[in-house]
């Protein structure tokens, strides 16, 4: 089961990744931490170029390319240009070519269950982060209920990292923490409760929640504790 500490370690490793092939190691760790059979990250840019990191067998990856399965795979067609997470059971597996694709995928070890996060990046960039597992519906219901939010965030953090490695990428505006976000994390970091932070900054706890949520995403963190640790280690917050 994925604990916060293990997830934090994955994000630290992701942060320390300095080259594209390093994403493969992150994908492998995601599988072990979530106790799932497969994970993959698939990038499509506006020029139509693809690349992929994942745990599927080389045979399946090769066959997928040879048979041009992106045209048939309902995960790709059902997620492209979308922004909501997709449980594979919701997709249409009924057309004959799709059923044959599914059979082929099963024979090559792809899980019968899956969950995919479509990600819209800048300038028409699109990515898909998916996890897949062999299990029954009841287990998958529980898994998605427990982990979907973490998976959504991890997918976006992976994509943000992948964008850093784009060779001709126009430099993104860095997203520094705003003064309010810095204040909030600093006070939380020195042990103030949320109520005390809100009172000190003369804002409501609701407003504070928005600052924390937004700082957390900017910092690539899954929870507040991790966000504070990240801000401290980057020197943004001094405690």
């Amino acid at each position: 089961m994925a604990t916060n500490t293990e997830l934090d370690k994955i994000l630290e490793a992701l942060d320390a990744t300095t080259a594209l092939p390093g994403l493969q190691a992150i994908i492998d760790r995601i599988c072990s931490v979530f106790a799932i059979d497969h994970a993959m990250y698939h990038w499509v840019d506006s020029a139509g170029d693809h690349y992929y990191f994942g745990t599927y067998s080389p045979e399946w990856t090769q066959l997928y390319q040879e048979k041009n399965y992106t045209r048939i795979d309902p995960v790709v067609t059902g997620c492209y240009q979308r922004f909501h997470p997709v449980d594979w059971r919701r997709l249409d597996w009924s057309p004959k070519p799709v059923r044959e694709f599914f059979k082929d995928a099963m024979e090559h070890g792809v899980g019968n269950q899956g969950y995919s996060i479509p990600i819209r990046g800048p300038n028409g960039q699109f990515a898909l982060f998916s996890v897949s597992h062999h299990s029954d519906g009841a287990h998958w219901d529980k898994f998605t209920e427990q982990h979907s939010r973490d998976l959504i965030l991890i997918g976006h953090f992976l994509n943000r990292k992948a964008l850093e490695f784009e060779p001709d990428r126009a430099p993104e505006k860095a997203q520094p923490l705003s003064p309010r976000e810095l204040d909030a994390l600093t006070l939380l970091g020195i042990g103030y409760s949320r109520a005390q932070v809100a009172q000190t900054l003369s804002i409501s706890e609701h407003t504070l929640r928005v600052y924390i949520e937004s700082a957390r995403f900017k910092l690539g963190a899954l929870n507040t504790t991790h966000a504070i640790a990240r801000a401290v280690s980057c020197g943004m917050v001094i405690i």
């Binding site: 909501h84 449980d87 594979w88 059971r89 919701r90 059923r99 599914f102 019968n112 519906g137």
Partner: peptide
């Protein structure tokens, strides 16, 4: 909701057979 987004209720194995 399921009519628009698809349902999680019917398992893949059934759909594969169908």
């Amino acid at each position: 909701f399921d009519l628009s987004f698809g349902s999680t209720v019917s398992p893949l194995s059934l759909r594969r057979a169908g």
